[in-house]
Amino acid sequence: MTEIKSNAQLDLRGVMCPINFVKTKLKLETLEAGEVLELVLDSGEPIQNVPKSIKEEGHKILEVKKEGDHFRLKVQKG
């Protein structure tokens, strides 16, 4: 599988809900539709909540990788 290239990155380790989502949203707003944001989220509440909210706002989660106690996601702007 070819590596999905990201246009922007956001490391949200240590950032609480719902600020992590607000930051994700603000970052996505700087991108064009179809561009990809790479996100790092903690396990627990952040990974429980942020992907749901991303989907609800019409973006697509292309890839999820678990790395220890955090997750690396690639999100395509909808």
Binding site: I47, Q48, P51
Partner: peptide, 12 residues
């Protein structure tokens, strides 16, 4: 399913 494990994290 891609085996990403998000659902097991999401289920409280």
């Amino acid at each position: 399913c891609t085996g990403c494990t998000i659902c097991s994290e999401a289920c409280k």
